[in-house]
């Protein structure tokens, strides 16, 4: 039983076809990376899965309801006027959870992402990496079955993004939601996902898929293993082919 799927989905914008037709199915607990050049419709595919956008043609099925879906955007997207804990408590409060309960859950979620000391900090006082962690805590506080990440580390430096990649894997291991992860970084995709879906642009289509073996909480040194290198090469080859066809 798939948790969410796109079948024969096409999206048209004013300029013409932006995406599709594409087919993509997600099983519970799997981590899928969407990789592709800018404008290939990765983010559109993500918004379709989130139910934030409707397809022009085709069908989107979602077993995970709106309340069971969480999204993390490229920017931390925290409300600047709220302290970290209230930002994280927001989804629960909007869903009708009492303020006290929502705050308790938010504090717990923030401690899990290592922000236990910054519960009352405002977003302006957090570093880029910390803000992203708070954003991640806000996504996880609702205990989602489907977690959608739209280039969440794009604005961070290499060291922070590597640390956060490990954190995301560790944090989602317990809850095991299906994760869809948009990136244009091949190594990040291979490191984080069990399945890498390569997309091509003009209009956005799926060029191919690469499976990455191994446990999803990656062992140290995973980036130097044969599995990692082979998968990364396969993804790069697919991506190069996709770029050629697009050009």
């Amino acid at each position: 039983m798939s948790l969410a799927s796109l079948s024969g989905v096409e999206v048209d914008y004013d300029r013409g076809r932006a995406l599709g037709p594409i087919d993509l199915s997600l099983s519970p607990g799997e981590v899928v990376a969407l990789v592709g050049p800018s404008g290939c419709g990765k983010s559109t595919a993500l918004r379709l899965l989130a139910g934030l956008e409707a397809p022009t043609r085709g069908t989107v099925t979602r077993a995970a309801g709106k309340g069971e879906t969480a999204v993390v955007f490229q920017a931390a997207t925290l409300a600047p006027w709220l302290p970290a804990r209230d930002n994280v408590a927001l989804p629960l409060e909007l869903a009708g959870t009492s303020k006290v309960e929502a705050r308790a859950a938010a504090d717990e979620a923030l401690r899990k992402v290592g922000l236990g000391a910054a519960l009352n900090a405002r977003p302006a006082q957090l570093s880029g990496g910390m803000a992203m962690r708070a954003s991640l805590a806000r996504a996880l506080v609702t205990r989602p079955r489907l977690l959608l990440l739209d280039e969440p580390f794009a604005a961070l430096d290499e060291i922070t993004r590597r640390a956060l990649a490990d954190d995301v894997l560790a944090l989602t291991a317990e809850l095991a939601p299906a994760v869809v992860f948009v990136t244009h970084n091949v190594e990040e995709a291979v490191y984080m996902a069990g399945r890498v879906v390569v997309m091509t642009s003009g209009p956005g289509r799926i060029a191919g898929e690469v499976a990455v073996a191994g446990p999803l909480v990656r062992p140290p040194g995973f980036r130097t293993t044969e599995v990692f290198r082979t998968a990364a090469e396969a993804v790069s080859t697919l991506l190069a082919g996709a770029m050629e066809r697009a050009a």
Binding site: K66, G67, T77, A79, L90, P91, L94, A95
Partner: peptide
């Protein structure tokens, strides 16, 4: 309004 923040409000059924 930050469009992504607005999307989150949609997502959480505000």
């Amino acid at each position: 309004i930050d469009p992504d923040l607005s999307r989150l409000f949609d997502l959480y059924g505000a």
